[in-house]
Simulated assay, not measured.
Amino acid sequence: MVWDIPIGMSIGRRALHDRLGGGSRQDGITRVVKSDEMLVFTNDGGGEHGYGVHEGLRADGVFRYTGQGQHGDQKLTGNNKALAESEEIGRPIRVFRGQGTVTYVGSFALADPPYTWERFPGTGASPERDGLVFNLVAVDADTSLLPALADEEGSASSRGPETQASPVTTLWQPLDFSEYQVRRVDEGESVRSVSRREFELQTRFGEWLRARGEDVQVLRLTEDGVTIVPDLYVPTLGQVVEAKKSTARAYVRTAIGQVLDYTAVAGRRGLAVAPAILLPSEPRPSMVELCTSVGITVWWPISSGDFQDVRP
């Protein structure tokens, strides 16, 4: 079945399901078996069930969407499980906004991580509970049709583009690793750290730089209504640094794209910086060559506790 609903089109919910040939007309997440599409509906009304503060478009373009289940702890079963598995199965995720009449926002994919377990506030006599929050990113969509995340209502993403905003720097502080935890998605109850190695690596590197007399800061750059923040900004070296927890090719390639974006945006704001990548160990020579060939410095820790770099 060819998807023929254009982005921005509004249609009655009943008519939508009749057109697609299936799917629940009440659930916020539903699968249309006939076309194998995942449909996701956001209607700005989740606050009454205690999870509205978790749902909305973040400034970085990630759409946080709460899982299904209005009472008690949510579970990774049923439609929640179907949405979580959509990436590996290849099911398209179609996001709509509204209730009786819904507007098609576009197609989305699961981000990394695809979801986290979070505490939802209680409502009325109901206690706090555990809930799923899915992280969705646009594939072909008009994200301006989505509501802004509640705690970012006053941010640039909800006010519109601020493409000429100046860079903002603040003092860097060692990271608290305990802030970066989510519940294990496969076991349900045990807790693991996500990218803890990455945050430990950033802290070790930042403290090592300071011990050498370098200035270490946090740099915030805003363009097109989106704020991006490199992991470290070292003005005394003139570098913005992106840290990754692995030297695997996929991580290095992602870091290259991110750090080149940082330097390009900074340059358009009048701040000349050089790109750098921080890895947990010495990468393969081919990865070092790839980075240096596009002007990126590569850093990694060595056995002495110091850090070594290879510059372009």
Rank of each mutant, 00 (worst) to 15 (best):
P230S: 10
V229M: 13
R249S: 01
R268S: 10
V191C: 00
W208F: 08
V265D: 06
R253N: 04
R204W: 13
E207K: 14
R197Q: 08
D231L: 02
R192K: 09
L221H: 11
E189N: 05
V265T: 12
T222C: 13
S190N: 10
Q239I: 00
T203D: 04
V234C: 05
S190C: 08
E223Q: 15
T254G: 03
G267N: 06
T227Y: 10
D261P: 00
A255H: 05
R192H: 05
K245E: 03
K244G: 02
T247I: 15
V240Q: 12
D186R: 12
T222H: 15
R212Q: 10
Y262W: 07
A266Y: 01
A274C: 03
G238V: 13
D215H: 06
L271F: 11
A211S: 12
D261C: 04
R212D: 00
S193H: 11
L232Q: 08
V273C: 05
V273T: 14
L237N: 02
E242Q: 14
V191W: 14
E198C: 06
D261M: 08
Y233L: 13
T247Y: 04
A255M: 02
A248V: 02
V218Y: 10
V259Y: 10
G225P: 13
V234T: 06
R197F: 12
R210Q: 09
S246Y: 10
A264G: 02
R269L: 06
E200D: 09
G213N: 13
V265W: 12
G267A: 15
L232V: 01
A264N: 13
V240T: 09
E187A: 10
E242N: 11
D261S: 05
V259W: 14
D261H: 12
G270H: 07
S246H: 10
E207C: 07
T203K: 10
R204I: 01
T254E: 15
F205L: 03
L201Y: 14
V229D: 13
V226F: 08
E242T: 07
S246P: 01
S193C: 05
E189S: 07
G238F: 15
A243H: 07
T263H: 01
G238Y: 15
P235K: 03
V259S: 11
D215A: 05
L237D: 00
K245W: 08
D215N: 04
S195P: 05
V252C: 00
E189F: 02
I256H: 10
L201C: 08
G257R: 05
V191R: 04
S190V: 11
T247G: 04
L271D: 01
A274G: 01
R192V: 10
L221C: 06
V218H: 10
V259G: 02
D261Y: 12
A211F: 06
Q258E: 09
R212K: 14
E214N: 01
Y251C: 13
S190I: 08
L209Q: 13
R192W: 00
A255G: 05
E223H: 06
D224M: 10
F205D: 00
R210N: 05
V252N: 03
Q202K: 13
G267K: 04
G270I: 01
E189D: 09
A250I: 05
A255E: 02
K244Y: 15
E242H: 04
S246V: 09
L237Q: 03
R253G: 00
